[in-house]
């Protein structure tokens, strides 16, 4: 077969024109850019969705805490270990007895502890991030003769994670008398530094002002030892979050 005959039998070989190459390249480039943009957008949406989910979960958690606080029990000697103070607040913990259990559905009374769990080792230069732990134990009636830890069955969960600058604060009203501090007199929120408790005064706080001792009388109990109101405050995703628990009517 001659060279000219081979040319005649084989299909005509043709390369792509410049226009075709440009169109194909443009199409591939457009698709790549579109996929990359969609990928980034989807990631942002997922992050935003997670933030909304966390916000709603936080709202439910705070509503639940509201309900537990509203149904707290004061002044009842329910348990030999707990009867001394029904509500106690320290710089790290709030403890009270409530009739709204979360982890012990069958228990009529549970003792609840909200605890700020800070990591043991903090990295210098980083903001303090902590979590809010929750513990719940059955309140045992000492008369029943079953006062042991197995019956109490303390259980713990983490309620809120990654909270910046979380702390307990309490409302101090030094105008109510008796407070001997170097701070200027007045009412304000102060970070909790020592343990305070709510006693029976919580149930009749309208009488507190009337019952305040005269200025010249020695104070039987310092006002700063009494918890009028408290709040748990912190920052989540840069937004301020607060759960306030105020003295008032209780069971």
């Amino acid at each position: 077969m001659t060279r000219s005959a081979r040319h005649r039998c084989s299909p005509p070989a043709r390369g792509m024109t410049l226009l075709e190459v440009v169109i194909a390249t443009s199409a591939m480039l457009s698709i790549t850019v579109l996929v990359a943009a969609l990928w980034a957008q989807t990631r942002d949406w997922s992050r935003e969705n997670a933030a909304h989910h966390a916000a709603l979960r936080l709202d439910r958690t705070l509503n639940l805490l509201d309900e537990q606080w509203a149904t707290r029990v004061l002044g009842v000697a329910l348990d030999s270990a707990y009867a001394a103070s029904a509500v106690t607040l320290t710089d790290r913990e709030l403890t009270f007895v409530t009739t709204t259990p979360i982890l012990h559905r069958d228990a009529p009374f549970v003792r609840v502890t909200l605890r700020i769990d800070r990591p043991a080792a903090m990295v210098v230069g980083h903001r303090a991030v902590a979590s809010l732990g929750y513990s719940e134990a059955r309140v045992v009636n000492p008369a029943a003769g079953a006062d042991d830890s197995a019956v109490r069955d303390e259980r713990s969960i983490v309620l809120i994670e990654d909270v910046e600058d979380i702390r307990f604060e309490r409302w101090v009203d030094e105008s109510l008398g008796g407070a001997a501090t170097r701070e200027p007199a007045g009412a304000r929120w102060m970070e909790v530094t020592s343990a305070v408790s709510i006693a029976a005064a919580d149930r009749s706080d309208t009488a507190e002002r009337a019952d305040a001792p005269p200025p010249d009388a020695p104070p039987a109990r310092r006002e700063t030892d009494r918890l009028l109101a408290g709040r748990l405050i912190g920052l989540i995703e840069g937004k301020e979050v607060a759960w306030q628990f105020l003295a008032g009517p209780s069971r």
Partner: peptide, 20 residues
Amino acid sequence: GLRAGRLIAESSRVERALGD
């Protein structure tokens, strides 16, 4: 969906702030 989620989250924050 995202807009509704944002509105609900913001609305719950406003509601809590109002109660406080």
